[in-house]
Nucleic acid binder design. Structure first.
Lengths: 138, 138
DNA sequence: TTGGGTGCAAAATGTTTGCAATTCG
DNA sequence: CGAATTGCAAACATTTTGCACCCAA
């Protein structure tokens, strides 16, 4: 599924700007901020505005094609929704994020989910220190 | 431990404003925004500015007395660090948050934590629908 | 007394909105 | 062509910063 198809399937018109945004998200290994998209695309041939990026991300989020996340307690980040959901290890030393290849909660019976509260999703981030920063940290 | 002692232990001067902020956090059952603190204290006898609140929360966060959280993908919230850490059920219907009384991950061996990445903390939020909203939602 | 703290204003940052001009279908 | 989309400016909300005055230690 390429950018063009993704946009079509959302019922959105395929514009130069939107294609570039979706392509950028497809290439991104990590959640990215609106500003990162803006800077990256501005450096290429693509000229577009931040408001367009926000609007597009908003629309794609509504269609569940993009997910808004908030990693590292800072800005909003956005990532393409791929297989299921995704969690990250976040290094407190260098801020790098490492995607986990599976959900640690998968298949787990959560004590909180009972008839009084129906759990439909979760968000999990693991913090710590990567190999390099473990050394530097001491 | 009261507000006064908490501030002292952080090496911060005990001022009227800071005391009020910490007391408010102690009474709060849930993470609160800077603005909520501002409005609540303004209504009482306490006069103080938002910048003072942000500065104080910043300092308390640095001392690990307060934790910054971002629930519901919206604004920054702050909560007093009590016993260990805390997780919430968040209702997507009414936005209400319900504190869990224990950490579902407690005692769990996380597959990601090995010698290459040392896990020191995590953040987990569970989303779903509370009893009332399960009915309304359909 | 004095260095940290606060009031206050102003700036910086991130995001949203309104509208005319443009472009996709 | 007509509706959706964009460029652009301006508004908005949140958070940070600078500085003179103030007050806790």
């Amino acid at each position: 599924m390429d950018a063009h198809e993704i946009l079509m399937s959302c019922g959105l018109k395929v514009t130069r700007q939107r294609q570039a945004i979706v392509e950028y998200l497809m290439d991104a290994a990590m959640p990215v901020t609106a500003e990162e998209i803006y800077r990256a695309l501005s450096q290429k041939e693509v000229s577009l505005w931040l408001s367009t990026i926000y609007r597009t991300l908003e629309q794609l989020s509504a269609k569940n094609v993009v997910r808004k996340t908030m990693l590292r307690e800072e800005k909003n980040c956005y990532e393409l929704v791929r297989e299921g959901h995704r969690h990250y290890l976040i290094c407190l030393g260098c801020n790098r994020m490492i995607a986990l290849d599976s959900c640690p909660l998968h298949g787990m019976k959560l004590p909180a989910g009972n008839d009084r509260f129906q759990i439909t999703g979760h968000r999990l981030e693991l913090y710590g220190y990567c190999e390099k920063c473990q050394r530097d940290h001491h």
